[in-house]
Amino acid sequence: MSTNMMQTEIEGILRDAFAPTRLEVINDSAKHSGHSGHDGSGESHFTVVIESAAFAGMSRLQRHRKVIAALGDIPGQRVHALAIKALAPGEST
């Protein structure tokens, strides 16, 4: 069974929290098939690319903390791995 419930949930939370000017939530789970964090749900590994004016003037650590805080118990518990790229408008990836 394959669903994208987690992806949708992450997208919804981040849209509400940061009003992003760019948001990509990429499911990387298939790339990690067979290693310890891969739980068979198909939704264990994600990459988030988010651009928001909310991140202007913040350090990388502060941005990551904001994203992680918004996502509550998802990073590290409900999702094994969440890669985050948090940008302010005008910054390049």
Partner: peptide, 19 residues
């Protein structure tokens, strides 16, 4: 910080893999 790995330099938390 909810995930591992975590890097510390001179007692200060620097970040995880992405950072």
């Amino acid at each position: 910080w909810p995930t591992i790995p975590q890097l510390y330099v001179k007692g200060e938390f620097v970040g995880g893999c992405d950072i």
